[in-house]
Design a protein around this nucleic acid. Sequence first.
DNA 1: ATTTATCTTGCAAACATTTTTAAAACCTAT
DNA 2: ATAGGTTTTAAAAATGTTTGCAAGATAAAT
Lengths: 343, 343
Amino acid sequence: MGKKTTIYDIAKRLNTTASTVSRALNNSPKISKKTKDLVLETANKMNYQQNKLALALKSGKSNNVGVIVPRIDSNFFASIIKGIEENLYAHGYRVIICQTQNNQNIEVEIINTLLKAQVDGILMSISSINLDTKNSFNRILQKQIPLIFFDRKANIKDVSSVTINDFEAGYMATKHLINQGCKKIAHLSGNILLDIFNNRFLGYKKALEEEGIEFNKAYVLKIRSTVKDGQNAAKQLLKLRNPPNGIFSSSDYAALGAIQEIKANGIKIPGDIKVVGFANEPFTKFMELSISTIDQSPVEMGKIAANVFLQQSNNSENTKIEKNVVLAPKLIIRKSSLKHPNE
Amino acid sequence: MGKKTTIYDIAKRLNTTASTVSRALNNSPKISKKTKDLVLETANKMNYQQNKLALALKSGKSNNVGVIVPRIDSNFFASIIKGIEENLYAHGYRVIICQTQNNQNIEVEIINTLLKAQVDGILMSISSINLDTKNSFNRILQKQIPLIFFDRKANIKDVSSVTINDFEAGYMATKHLINQGCKKIAHLSGNILLDIFNNRFLGYKKALEEEGIEFNKAYVLKIRSTVKDGQNAAKQLLKLRNPPNGIFSSSDYAALGAIQEIKANGIKIPGDIKVVGFANEPFTKFMELSISTIDQSPVEMGKIAANVFLQQSNNSENTKIEKNVVLAPKLIIRKSSLKHPNE
DNA sequence: ATTTATCTTGCAAACATTTTTAAAACCTAT
DNA sequence: ATAGGTTTTAAAAATGTTTGCAAGATAAAT
């Protein structure tokens, strides 16, 4: 009873061959209605389930898609995955999740593993960009497997991507702070080697420039996306002879840490210092002092990334057509950055 | 150049056969060092990558494990998946993610799909329990595929599970409220057909009983895990002739909604009403009025569920040995439930 | 030099499908 | 009744591996 029933089993019972059964199950026009019904009935009776593995081997399509993210337990990435999964499931694809933990060795290894598993496509948010990873990307492309970047992209020819306009986001956030009366604006930045962080930084700079505010190198600190790093950054900023009165953080978590630290020093938010974060993590909305932030529409981003994949894998011609979708960021204004929070 | 190289290609180039190449690559002792080196070298040169699909078909092991959750974009489930993924990846398994969206039809369909995909195991948190799903579970068991429940389990013979002690959690939370001076304690409950919610409810009742507090049916409301439902529930509770002064919510989101609603009515938390939530979602910690809650150690839960799977799939004997791991919940006391929040 | 033992390799089957090609079976019209 | 055509089924090849069995080659021992 533990054995799986195959089309051979069905064939044997009906005194026919596997090919007939296969065609009958696939509703081929070459099979008479009578045998079709018979096959279908016995298949049901025998509890037959198609073995997708065999089909995959035969057809060369596994119907599996690999999704690679730095980590899954952040609302941002979880939401993207939600979008991808929902869209691809409806098209018969299964989604294989892998986390790099921001480790480039793991990243390269994961790509290899997915290739061996014969995935039909790879959707990923890169953790690092260097010679090894670039090599991996090329191996994917050589095998003609669709590769799509989301959020954190590398600039590689023929590779599509779905991102938000991070430059615009940085610009909007900074401009908003200026509009609320800030003249001395700090920026908590991520690793500038990644496009997303670099672009946010450039947007920040542009906004300052436009308003004739001089760029102050001491106001820009590199942080990881943690509460702790935000606290440390705030400490450092408050120690300055001329501390900022506005902070644009590339991370909601760091923004939170900064806010906690600043408050602990008896300094008022948004009164004395105004803060804008990034990513619209759920907690930013729920806090008493709700945090202004940038929304990146992660679920939509995931859905679009999935769509781009579907397009590319349908049109084998299109595999080489690069398509770069850039979503508009949304500035979400909450209390942490308002000049007059009670109005 | 787009063609994949197979062991046949390597064999042809070396004027030998596929079997030799296979053995060489697998470091079989039956192959001389000389040819091994030769094969390995040319395999590298030709950019060979093993086709896991073929191997899977041959061996009957796909090295894929299906993970089914109601949704992925909640910190709780994302964290569990993180634990599962990290543990299983290290053992050569890939994790296929599926969401049921709490829909039982989808749930049944997903199980079917995973079975066809020949997964080596299914780890799931059930969405619903009824005849159809039970049928699906039986089909999994019939195929001798390890099935492990986490958090939301069904009581099925021979099926292992990893849960927390929800009874204890409900008891702890309620007892804590009582200790903080509450005598009139409401409970926001989920669907009581699911064990987790029923057990939390029973724990709640037990604590009341132990303290000689009479059970009041009007204090128990059924909610979904949303802010909105929490708000509505609070509205309803406040309308009572004798409103509660403590709330134990089965959901952090609902607890948040209740808190918002209560505050909006000018009622003090924790002064007038004390609140405890459930799940330790990140925001509960970050809020100005931090929310007391129950931590379920989701990452650990995922890791343990993965371990149970690994044990069962190694010992084919053990497949039928039910193992029910019950983790201890942790009551995390924060401001929302404290008699004297400033001490 | 021949047998025996040991080491190394090749052949073919197996995994569960689909698909191409070929062959029956059936029917219709002459 | 038979040629021609159409419909239906059967046989075989193909997908990329692993593996049991047999055989070939080499080395050792008589």
